[in-house]
Design a protein around this nucleic acid. Structure first.
Lengths: 220, 220
DNA sequence: GCAAAAGTGTTGTCCTTACACCCATGG
DNA sequence: CCATGGGTGTAAGGACAACACTTTTGC
């Protein structure tokens, strides 16, 4: 049997000390004027991966971003038109890198905007559930993926890094223990620079060393 | 756009010291006479969860089994008829419990049969890939789920338990360390019985205590 | 008595956690 | 000089890995 087939995108970023999520305001029925995950119908005989790329671009203006599959959500009652199967994908982007590029190409969506994950509006369809599941997954994989570093600018301070961990895990961490753990892991490169423009002691800047990270994790 | 929508089931069990997988022999084109994961088309406006139950029953004779979603597999070239999206589900069953029930109801499949996961035949579609991914997931969740205990009979010896771990992880474990870890976890109940019918020292039997397991894990 | 598997302890290393104060800087 | 966040060490407990021999049983 055939079914409608859509893609939804969960796009995380980090700004102002908070985990952020990119949502679009729908300009079409159903759920017109509601906020929703960027997502839409696939086309006939379109590869799923191509559909993800296309829809991501058309709805947010973002390109060349790798998205990981979260899972399929069906449910006859998800949509007034009957069963629509959606496959959700998630990714993480650097806020500064995409800031100027966010802009829906299609007129199906009125605008795309960042929301702090702890201050989301009411969402269309079952998107709140998809987001919950995505956050769950992020929590579990945080230590085994480069996800955290995708959330930060190229050069960052240890406090910023800790904030990202805290935002994702939803709890505060001990500063000394956190730094020991990071130092131990050994895939941060200390830079000869420090923060600028702060009215207190400037913090050391670090960079993530992907090569060293892969060496570590590939042993396991 | 619409797409064909199928379900595939990855069903693990454990017998003769090996991790086993239930496959069906196809009686229809495409891939007639090939071995494949039990799976078929969903029906119009059928809930995904209902489709899983129905297909599992029709193709293997198994009922009342909870299946967990693995993910969606699309791919225009998966199937001669064009894009067919399949959502894979996996589960684990006790070999003894189901032994006599395995039997396809539908004539689309000629027979259902267990194969050791390290001795699988050539498989239809992209089912080999789905199985690989499922095994990966099993490895990762082995310590945080009741999966292992679903694989064993009600009463089992510690050596049997260790064999299951070894089969899933694909490596041998140290007996003393393994027993310490299990004892530490504290959700096995030692029974007053021992093995029977063996020509060497009979091993103590244990039972898995689900209540204690949940207490442990829910704290985290 | 022998074959076959059951059962059992110790040690070192490393990771995790808890916990509090001085330091550097800009204004 | 003060407000603000940056930066640092230690001790205890728990988890993990390495490692080999004795015991029980059926035949």
């Amino acid at each position: 049997m055939q079914t409608h087939f859509t893609i939804d995108c969960v796009i995380f970023s980090f700004n102002e000390g908070k985990l952020q999520l990119l949502l679009t305001e729908r300009n079409v029925y159903p759920y017109k004027d509601w906020w929703a995950l960027p997502g839409f119908f696939t086309e006939k005989d379109e590869e799923m991966e191509d559909a993800v790329k296309r829809i991501l671009y058309e709805h947010t203006g973002l390109k060349d971003i790798f998205m990981e599959q979260l899972g399929a959500f069906a449910g006859v009652k998800r949509h007034p038109e009957g069963r629509i199967l959606t496959v959700a994908f998630s990714t993480i982007v650097k806020y500064e890198d995409v800031r100027s590029k966010i802009r829906p190409i299609t007129s199906y969506m009125r605008q795309a905007k960042w929301f702090a994950v702890d201050q989301l509006p009411d969402l269309a369809f079952d998107h709140a559930q998809i987001i919950q599941q995505s956050l769950q997954k992020l929590k579990h994989t945080i230590n085994y993926s480069t996800a955290v570093y995708e959330l930060l600018p190229d050069k960052f301070t240890l406090t910023q890094l800790q904030q990202v961990y805290e935002a994702i895990l939803g709890k505060t961490l001990d500063k000394r223990n956190f730094r020991k753990k990071i130092a131990n892991a050994g895939f941060l490169k200390e830079l000869p620079e420090v923060q600028k423009g702060v009215s207190y002691r400037a913090a050391r800047l670090y960079r993530f060393d992907k090569r060293k990270f892969q060496k570590q994790t590939s042993v396991m």
